[in-house]
């Protein structure tokens, strides 16, 4: 399943490394990355494939959220469909 991971927080060294390590450990494949700094906040959006993640999606979402809190970042994962529905005809 294709999903979008959004990472938002204060900019510092190593965020991309930490998040991609976390995703790699969960078997989540990163397909595309886009990143910017918005109003001093580091903002990263990743298109990922969760097919190799063995557990339920909700569990993955919770894992990312919890680990995100540990590193003082907001990490959320949502199925890509919602953005397609809202922004593409």
């Amino acid at each position: 399943m294709r999903a979008i991971v959004t990472v938002v927080g204060n900019d510092r060294v190593g965020i991309i490394a930490e998040v991609s390590t976390l995703l790699a450990q969960s078997g989540v494949n990163i397909l595309d990355i886009s990143q910017t700094v918005l109003q001093e906040f580091f903002t990263m959006v990743m298109l990922v494939d969760t097919a190799a993640y063995s557990g339920p999606f909700a569990e993955l979402a919770e894992l990312l959220e919890t680990r995100g809190r540990d590193i003082a970042m907001s990490i959320r994962i949502q199925r890509e469909d919602i953005f397609e529905a809202m922004h593409r005809i």
């Binding site: 959006v45 919602i82 593409r88």
Partner: peptide, 10 residues
């Protein structure tokens, strides 16, 4: 891919 602004807007 959906662009970053669209995702953040949603």
């Amino acid at each position: 891919m959906i662009n970053i602004n669209e995702i953040l807007e949603t």
